[in-house]
Design a protein around this nucleic acid. Sequence first.
DNA 1: CCAGCCCCCTGTCGGC
DNA 2: TGCCGACAGGGGGCTG
Length: 270
Amino acid sequence: MPELPEVESVVRGLRDDVVGCSFTCFETTWPRQIRPYTPKAFASRLVGQRIITLGRRAKYIVFTLSDDVLFVHLKMTGRLYIKEKWPDEDDTYVRARFGLDDGNELLFSDMRKFGRIQLVADAEEITGSLGPEPLSDSFTLDDFRDRLTQRQGTIKPLLMNQQFVAGVGNIYADESLWLARIDPRRKADTLNSEEIERLYDAIRKVLEAGIAREGASVNWYRKPDGTTGSQQNYFYVYDQVDKPCPRCGSLVHKIRLGQRGTHFCPTCQV
DNA sequence: CCAGCCCCCTGTCGGC
DNA sequence: TGCCGACAGGGGGCTG
């Protein structure tokens, strides 16, 4: 559920609290989520390293450290926050604790244990195969058009393919296709030039709106201060089954596409 | 390259 | 009421 806007909001909410700090300790109650694989090896490599910058790449939270790079992926139900700034007393889903040298604790909570915490020397090991950042200058219409027209697959799963475009997940894929008035079942290479341009604009627009509203709290996502984002109050079609399409009034349909729930307007998405 | 399936997990919800 | 299967959906892996 955390997609680009949600991860970006977490990064922005944490940055001032962690940049400049060094790690003093690390412990986990679910070692399967970490790399290197054993808590001991992970901790001994991490402790003492200082956080130089905090950023985001695709749906990864990226800590650039004095020696290594720390990647945190929230997957479905992950949360990352400073314990002292989180409103609830006890979080039963805390899977990892990072001690910081300012006395605070950085907690990783994850109900479903899908999240990942990885420490690598070379960031490329994680980011090497990722597609372009859709909000960066390097994501151009021409490049998008070139790569899209070479694909024969279904457009919606393609938008969610992190090697094709980084950071788009199920929510923002559905929202982008609605805004661009494109049926999510279309094959990529059948999109004409105008449709491709509409889609390019739509992807950027829905992601920017998501960031401006600090993400969509459909169920588990929270910002590092414990509060919800508000993008869920502005969905066009996602999670809006049988509600009227905001554009034409037809009832929103839900189907399965690529093993994912897919919401769209059967009338004005063609 | 692409579609479809399973798996990793846990909580919620609807049907019986 | 309580059990059970479906579903939620990010990503990796495998097969045809």
